[in-house]
Amino acid sequence: MNRSNTKTIIRRQRLYEQLFILLGLVALLVALMTLLALFTRLAIDGMPRLNPDFFTSFPSRFAEKAGILSAWVGSFLVMFVTACAAIPLGVSAGIYLEEYAPKNRWTAIIEINVMNLAGIPSIVYGLLALGLFVQTFGFGQSILSAGLTLALLILPIIIVSTREALRGIPGGIREAAYALGATRWQVVADHLLPYSSGGVLTGVIIGLSRAIGETAPIITIGALTFIAFLPTSPFMAEFPFISFKWVLDPFTVMPIQMFNWTSRPEEAFQFNAAAAGVVLLAMTLLMNGVAIWLRYRIRKSIKW
């Protein structure tokens, strides 16, 4: 092989490499530009409708008068139920799998099962909820059914992030606590949980941001698309001041409201859909932003 031949080969390989870098940047740009196009288009279409009235009005037959009051209140209440159900259950399961579980076949089955649950399409959870919560348990098409459905859906996310947060804590911390005579639960409650709380919180926020945008399973349990009233107030004038009647009330949520407006033929409703989309997107991006920031801070501040 003579020298000029080698040089050509090297030059050609370098060129391929440059071309690939270009390709990689183009691929990134396609993804990012899509995201950007989505944001701008949604903002352009939705901005004119984003006035205070939009947030304080019920849906209406007239596009200009319609608002998202019942939708955002519904989303908020459903998220509350979801958080109440998913956080204790998911964090407990994560603690058990990471700190208590013996290494045997049963544990392996539970672990594989959690991974598989994460792969099940969300609409199948909707069918589960329709058969179980709505029909069998008789919760009806209520906030409670929806909240529990979304709780099941995000359970794997919370379990996995709890486990990862716990795994990141060095074994020395556990050993030091045990050496002082702490029981297993004391180690978990007094040491591991406080140290892992940032990681757990990140997982919870990501899970809830996924839940708030979920549409399909909530449609499946039969959430109404046209709700021009609010659920019963959780606060009462007389004792005990707090009422839980609202959990069994019918409801609608942001993504369903947006879907409903998107599927109307009149163009005016498309602008409402875009405005609802802006609000929905702002909610999810805010939650994700907080989660990313939190993770970044944990990585920076904790050096074991």
């Binding site: 993804a31 989505l38 288009r41 945008g213 549409t215 947006m258 875009a274 994700n288």
Partner: peptide, 20 residues
């Protein structure tokens, strides 16, 4: 940023597909 792309609610993507 890529993570944000995965976090956008699917109904918003649906709107984007239909309208844009």
């Amino acid at each position: 940023i890529l993570e944000l792309l995965g976090a956008v609610p699917t109904v918003v993507f649906g709107y984007f597909a239909l309208i844009v």
